[in-house]
Design a protein around this nucleic acid. Structure first.
Lengths: 347, 347
DNA sequence: GCGGGCTTTGAATACGTATTCATACAATGA
DNA sequence: TCATTGTATGAATACGTATTCAAAGCCCGC
């Protein structure tokens, strides 16, 4: 065994040095406790001398609150998720809670990661990735840990969550493209297990079919939710000469759209929106850079995170089935330059 | 008081149900413990029935190891840091440890955040941001928590760390620009408190001065380590007509370089590298996108993270002053298209 | 049948803090 | 002066697990 690290001072040590009881030390460090001014000062002085800081893990044991929240993120290479994580860390920090970060890359091991998270008695779990099986429901119910799904939802609406109107987003993009005269559409889809991609695709398709676009006019390829895969995938599709080329591409997330844009312009030498129009969804900063100026639907991250934090404030509600909220916020259409703007005078 | 959440099952509950002692339950869940096969199975069965999962926080109390590592990141909007965080979360997860994420935006509150982290008895602290005062040293020494600085270093070399040869990086960029014929240089600096920006600037200047570039030929402006600030700052500088324009710009980090690039091309209508050359440092993915193809020096993130993990493995060493390692890795020159390549035949 | 090693077991205790409980004390009002 | 409220205080206990310790059971060869 390694020699143990220089054990940090405990409340008992401080109590001994200050000549008070351990309880007094505890009280000295918790605001609003009943303790006299000079005794508190004596304690704090002794604490300072010993480099004492309270051990929050130990207090978790007593209070049954760890002040830690597990945040499960998917691919941080997707700026949408790093922007979200940033917002969560900052937000929780402000309310004195800490973020225990988990990353799930492979869709399959999502449950396992959740399991990991549960070993720590986190006060809540925020899930921003991974299609989560019904196991989650059991965990939430059995262990009483509130769960909030961010940018995800289950059909059953049995778990609280915040997400955007993704069907509406898909439809809005479809509208923009259709009214700009597009006729042959290509969808670059993300993770088919995730509700986000699914809903956007569905909204897009539904709008077009309702406008009389034939099912054969809507093609679909896989972009694996990443820049690289989308770029490769789209390039391959365009180089395969056997089918007519689409004139409008909807990549269901911005990061994928950027991959497509680079494939089109750099790899294939096409002009956007001249030769083909393109749009994404999410509204990541990178898409706003002037080199891209991508047409997209922005998700209001700040608002979504704020809402999530609020939901967790009233954590009790999250366990009452009748109080479970699934909030759907509207996205904001950002008219970039990758889809032609509608003409002013013609309807 | 809120009604308490449905208390999760404890090892005692399981023990009672399985008709064994609590110690047996603990043993059933720790591999390599001396327990008979059938008893372990009985315990696991009972545990399953009660949705029991061991409480790792409670075990931390006994074992004095929390299996949590604090990672303090700066601005996650800088992709370099989100890429790093991603690597850390993944890496730690693989070795069964969890990341407690802290974000420090304002340089001033760095110490305070560290203080926060210390409340949790994390096994180690990884610092990827914030100029950290000597307070850190005290904390590390007084509490015996190992600290590793990532992409940062103190002059004193009293804290272990991994970082790149930033002076060398600055010099290499200077060389590329100088040999491409640049004469008037502009540095867009980042956080002047951080060693990274400082070293790069220093390496850049030193190289040029040694080559006979007059001090007046090197100008410096502030880019505040962000895309937006750099873009604004550079645009303002170029629009101010009172001084001759530089013909080479070194933004000390890629994210700032991208801001500069968009300022030059989009806002100012200049050609890069035709009218002015530009380079950054870090090697973020975004800079590699074909719309930018930024000339830069890549930091080997994976290797840096792996090294950090290794250092933490031998955490004991981190407390022995004689064993403290400060590792400097070489960066890799990435010849993009924003600095003209050197001609083949002419020296 | 018996001592010597091995594995398995449960009781007891430690980990560091918060909280409860009962006691002691100070301040107040009459 | 005494009774009354309110505040300060420390002893004891709880939180959930790991570990130590001693006892108990087992198998082996002699």
């Amino acid at each position: 065994m390694a020699k143990k690290r220089p054990t940090r001072a405990t409340s008992h040590d401080v109590a001994r040095l200050a000549g008070v009881s351990q309880a007094a030390v505890s009280r000295a460090f918790s605001a609003g406790s009943s303790i006299s001014k000079d005794k508190r000062e004596r304690v704090l002085k002794a604490a300072h001398e010993l480099h004492y800081v309270p051990n929050k893990l130990a207090s978790s044991l007593s209070t049954a609150r760890s002040n830690m929240v597990a945040v499960i993120v998917g691919n941080l290479n997707n700026p949408f998720y790093s922007e979200s994580l940033q917002a969560f860390v900052t937000g929780f920090q402000e309310s004195g809670r800490q973020v225990l970060a988990f990353s799930v890359t492979d869709a399959a091991d999502g449950d396992e990661v959740v399991q990991q998270a549960v070993y720590y008695p986190v006060d809540a779990i925020v899930v921003t990735a991974a299609p989560l099986s019904s196991k989650l429901l059991k965990i939430s119910a059995g262990l009483g840990i509130p769960i909030v799904m961010f940018n995800r939802h289950l059909d059953s609406n049995r778990i609280a969550g915040v997400h955007c109107d993704n069907r509406g987003a898909g439809a809005r993009i479809a509208e923009a493209m259709h009214s700009a005269g597009a006729e042959r559409f290509l969808i670059v889809r993300g993770d088919p297990e995730g509700s986000t991609s699914r809903d956007r695709v569905e909204g897009f398709r539904t709008y077009l079919l309702a406008r009389g676009v034939p099912p054969t006019g809507i093609e679909e390829i896989d972009g694996a939710s990443s820049y690289g895969a989308s770029r490769d995938s789209l390039r391959a599709r365009f180089r395969a000469g056997d089918r007519p080329r689409p004139d409008a591409i909807y990549a269901v997330s911005d990061i994928m759209a950027l991959g497509c844009l680079d494939a089109l312009r750099t790899d294939l030498g096409l002009r956007v929106p001249g030769d083909v129009m393109l749009a994404g969804s999410d509204g990541i900063r990178q898409g706003r850079l002037s080199a891209y100026d991508l047409t997209t639907i922005r998700q209001p991250i700040e608002q979504m995170v704020a809402t999530t934090l609020q939901m967790l404030e009233s954590a009790e509600d999250l366990k009452n089935p009748d109080m479970i909220q699934v909030l759907e916020l509207p996205g904001e259409f950002i008219p970039g330059s990758t889809v032609p703007r509608p003409p002013r005078d013609k309807p």
